[in-house]
Amino acid sequence: MKVFAMIPARYGASRFPGKLMQDLGGKPVIVRTYEAAAGTGLFDRVIVVTDSSEIAEAVTGAGGEVIRSRETHETGSDRLAEAVAGLEVDVVVNVQGDEPFTERESLAKLLDVFHQDPEGVVDLASLMTEITDPEDIANPNTVKVITDRQGFALYFSRAPIPYQRAEQPKAVYYKHKGVYAFRKRALMDFRNLPIQPLEAVEKIEAIRYLEYGRKIKMVQTDVTGIEIDTPEDLERAKAAWT
């Protein structure tokens, strides 16, 4: 099974423009993320996909591989679908460019879904981690996910789900980590599926699959890391890096 890690990297992030080029321990965030993904040793190739000359130059200057995106895209998965169309690959792991603490353990669990699925039943898998901090649970920047008994996603939301209606039983909350593993055919399908109302409202690309009746296998990990969505996140990352 040929597996690539692909890192969508857009310069103009809405909440923190230019965040991928911010310094983290002497290198840009995107370079740190590239190096972390490559350092896991799990992938045949690690590729940054970007429409930004500045990001491309930073990654290639650090010895990384880049594919320049030629189109305007609504989501990172759309950007990857353009890049992967002509590549010979079985599984594509979408590593978010703002996750410089990407590590081997979680990604290996994600890839195990496909290694244990020789019939090719699962098209898409993603990561989740339990959260207990009330601020994280209420934070709309923290995407929550609920699953069925087999671990397939039922819904993703920026709102706290499930809703704690009574004192007991205590709700368990899971944060969706924006790392996806696609079979190539599923990623290409994503590009051809128009955005539907729930995705448009929540601005969560994984919902598109659910709205079209597809299944997403969720894999729990205890590794939280730090996703750099805001300047405050960057400061936390800098503190953790040292």
Rank of each mutant, 00 (worst) to 15 (best):
V3C: 08
A5G: 05
Y11D: 13
Y11P: 01
R15V: 05
R15N: 04
K19E: 06
K19Q: 12
M21Q: 02
Q22C: 07
K27T: 03
P28V: 04
T33L: 08
Y34R: 14
A36I: 08
A36M: 08
G39E: 05
R45L: 12
V46S: 05
I47F: 01
I47Q: 00
E54M: 02
G63A: 12
G64I: 10
E65L: 11
V66A: 02
R68I: 07
S69W: 03
S69L: 06
E71M: 07
T72P: 07
T72E: 11
S77N: 04
R79L: 13
E88C: 07
D90N: 15
V95Y: 07
A108K: 14
L110H: 08
V113F: 15
E119A: 12
V122G: 06
L124I: 14
A125D: 09
T129P: 06
E130L: 10
E130A: 10
E130Y: 06
T132P: 02
P134L: 05
A138D: 09
N139K: 02
V143M: 10
T147H: 01
A153H: 10
A153I: 02
L154Y: 00
Y155A: 10
F156H: 12
S157N: 04
P160Q: 02
P160V: 10
Y163Q: 15
Q164Y: 00
R165C: 03
E167C: 00
Q168D: 10
K170R: 14
Y174H: 14
K175L: 03
K177Q: 12
G178I: 00
G178V: 02
A181C: 05
R183C: 04
A186R: 15
D189R: 15
N192P: 01
P194Q: 06
I195R: 15
A200K: 06
E202R: 03
K203G: 00
Y209T: 04
E211A: 07
E211L: 09
Y212L: 02
K217C: 09
V219D: 09
T230V: 00
E232D: 09
K238I: 04
W241K: 06
W241N: 08
T242L: 02
